[in-house]
Design a protein around this nucleic acid. Sequence first.
DNA 1: CGTTAGCACTCTTTATGGTTGAGTGCCAGC
DNA 2: GCTGGCACTCAACCATAAAGAGTGCTAACG
Lengths: 344, 344
Amino acid sequence: MEALSARHIKVLQAVVEDYIHRGEPVGSRTLSRSPRFQLSPATLRNVMADLEESGFLCQPHTSAGRIPTDLGFRYYVNNLPDFAAVSSEARRQVKDRLEGSSGRLEEILQDGVFTLAQLTPYVGVVSLPDFRQMVVRHIRFVKLHERRILTVIVSVSGALQNVLFESETVLSQDQLNRFSNYLNALLGNLTLSGIKRMVLQEMASDKQGYDELFAQVLALSRSFFAQDPEQQSDVMLDGKLNLLEHPEFADVERMKEIFKTFEEKGSILKILDGALGGEQLRVIIGAESCCQEMRHCSLVTAEYGREGRTLGRVGVIGPTRMDYSRIIPLVNYIADAMSRRLQK
Amino acid sequence: MEALSARHIKVLQAVVEDYIHRGEPVGSRTLSRSPRFQLSPATLRNVMADLEESGFLCQPHTSAGRIPTDLGFRYYVNNLPDFAAVSSEARRQVKDRLEGSSGRLEEILQDGVFTLAQLTPYVGVVSLPDFRQMVVRHIRFVKLHERRILTVIVSVSGALQNVLFESETVLSQDQLNRFSNYLNALLGNLTLSGIKRMVLQEMASDKQGYDELFAQVLALSRSFFAQDPEQQSDVMLDGKLNLLEHPEFADVERMKEIFKTFEEKGSILKILDGALGGEQLRVIIGAESCCQEMRHCSLVTAEYGREGRTLGRVGVIGPTRMDYSRIIPLVNYIADAMSRRLQK
DNA sequence: CGTTAGCACTCTTTATGGTTGAGTGCCAGC
DNA sequence: GCTGGCACTCAACCATAAAGAGTGCTAACG
């Protein structure tokens, strides 16, 4: 498998592009008819045979045209000749949607995946930040019933979370208000797990002479953290039905498999945040995800965040035969738009 | 179409049951082999021909067996010979799941549909009560940022709702706490829309000499209601993928159609709560739903509620070829279990 | 008169085989 | 190194045939 010649590369690109747009194995005849080549089918056949030997192309069966392998797509993506500009229509839609949202993190994320599902024939996907790692702006306790307490937590990035727990003693709403105020005054750029650490430390040190209020807040916090907030992180999907339009998922079995994977979310999350702290943009092609069920899918994702902090990744899931040159800029654009929106 | 003889009824039941369990058109031969008939195929053919003429059976094509029409299923369901008892295993699962839940309405509903999706090969469905019609137990305002306020509303049945809105003036959390306390003291068996009505009335009457606090609460409430809580009612589904196991949805087109309908939720909701204040148990078979996309589906639903008040309906969606004799008691059982859980 | 056996008929399903067309690999010649 | 030619392969398509399941109708039986 020596280095590819300029011609090999050109042919590979042509095959990939043709396959992306027509969805059918591409033969030497088709290729030679394209104005970008002045070569006979026979010559192209030789080149394609080379590319097959190197693992960039393969044949579904003898006497069919070639289709790109994961490796072929990978080479194509890594050497993309040119990206399609994000259409003004798309820009408008992103803008409208995001500006209309309330500023709540969850809503912004939802708008992001929604727009992706609208603008592409693929599935929009976004990973929610781990709530425990987000900087808390505000905590409020609300008495529901007896010892049952609702905690409302707001993060600086606008995430909103409700957590229910039981306190050890019955407390009045007035007391809870005082606790809330006290805790909020204490809060300064701490994450939820930071707060937890602090609470545990203070309790361990077991100093006497705390003022009464602090001791009570500590006790309440402990009951709160005892009930560890369940959902650590999560993904949101939109436009699952888009996939049904693609011929590669016409097979019921394959579709069932993918939809099951979507349902579980765990594996999607693993693929998304797999090597977190990764690249701004990431393209995962077919089997590269190391997820058996996703071997026919590609993911294009980009980081979104706030003030330099990465919060998660947003992007699309589609068949490996995906229009990368259009999708990559679009995903970048939306991730960027979301980050800007979060800044506000 | 005269009245059906005992024999006709017996044959109809046999056809329906056989079709439910085997999923294939049932012919006179098959039927005559069943020990419940001592009749020759020819005789049964005559009977079946009658039933077809009356609209209870039909043939997918000449020289195929008969399958029940919607009308056939309807007759069968209305005259169900016997219900299968809810298995002890099922009872256990329902109990475990519901007792483990926190008591929040949403969680109880989710557990209900989840269990249905586990226990049946169909889709669990539940309609959420219209929040504005629920009796409010508790309201709390939380200051998020400047004029941005989060309202936490808890209903007596344990539903929890967050509503964001902007107040006209900047208020401190302390002020909001006072408002919350004031409003909660005022609350007595009022629904959200009841409160709205009251607020509007008071504002209209425009009396002078209100105490200061009351006037402020009124103003705040008005800003709140100006931003009419969006989601009026909703449905939750679980186990959509179950449908993929049924041969009647092997066709990709039909499946797509149904999944699209699920996505929208509106039409499901319409079917569910269509004639609200309806029967405790309701079975809707195929085209009876008057929803084009659901013409191949049946719904079995039952009311759930609290203290005599109906909150919504819970049940399953499946193919018209559904195991009614097992599903009907099960849906009843779960609706009952949910209502009991809500009582607590 | 209800029931049954027989029979011709219909229609789906499955298998079979031939044909077509797209595409390949290889080779010889330019 | 490129190209044209040729034999070969294989999926897709179509027509035809045979099998199988089930029907409707009719005539005969108790």
